[in-house]
Computed example of a mutant assay.
Amino acid sequence: MIVSIEGIDGAGKNTLVTELRKRTGAEVLCFPRYNTSLPARLAARALHGEMGDLTDSIHGMATLFALDRYGARDVLDRFRDSTELIVLDRYVASNAAYSSARAEDLSLCDWVADLEFGELGLPVPDLQVLLDTPVELAASRAESREAADSSRTRDRYESDLGLQERTLAAYHRLADRSWRGPWLIVDPRDTGEAAAAVESRLGAVRPHDHARGS
Rank of each mutant, 00 (worst) to 15 (best):
R78T: 05
I185H: 05
L76G: 01
D187M: 10
R80H: 10
E136W: 03
S100T: 12
S37K: 06
R41T: 14
Q128R: 14
E84D: 09
V28K: 03
N35T: 14
V112R: 02
A170P: 03
H208K: 14
R33Y: 11
A175W: 02
L127G: 00
L161C: 04
G121Q: 07
V129R: 06
R33V: 09
A142L: 09
N14P: 03
R33W: 11
E6A: 07
I86R: 06
V124M: 13
L64H: 08
E84L: 03
Y157E: 02
W111G: 14
Y34S: 03
V92Q: 02
E136T: 11
D56K: 13
R177P: 01
M1F: 02
I58A: 06
S107E: 06
A196E: 15
V129H: 01
P207H: 04
E158G: 00
D105L: 12
R69D: 03
L120I: 08
A211S: 15
V124T: 15
R23I: 08
T24H: 04
V198L: 08
L29C: 02
L161T: 01
G203T: 14
R173K: 04
A66S: 14
L85F: 01
A96S: 13
F65R: 11
G118M: 11
P188D: 10
G213P: 14
I8A: 01
G181M: 00
G121L: 07
C109E: 13
D209G: 15
A103I: 14
I8E: 07
D105P: 15
H48I: 11
D126V: 05
G181D: 02
V135F: 09
E165Q: 10
A194E: 14
T167W: 01
T63K: 13
E165P: 07
H48S: 14
I185K: 09
L131Y: 00
S140K: 12
S140Y: 00
R156Q: 07
L67G: 12
A66D: 11
V87F: 05
D74A: 07
R156K: 06
A26C: 02
G60R: 01
R102N: 13
I86A: 06
D176E: 10
L88V: 11
A11D: 06
A169H: 01
Q164K: 08
R69W: 00
D9K: 03
K22M: 08
A40P: 13
L202C: 14
R180L: 01
Y70H: 12
D160P: 02
P188E: 11
A138W: 13
W183L: 02
P188Y: 12
R212S: 15
Y70C: 05
A96D: 12
V28A: 02
L161K: 03
L137M: 09
L131E: 10
D155V: 00
R152T: 00
A195P: 15
K22W: 04
L16E: 12
P182K: 06
L120D: 00
L122D: 07
T191E: 11
E6N: 08
L67D: 12
R21H: 03
A103K: 12
E104V: 12
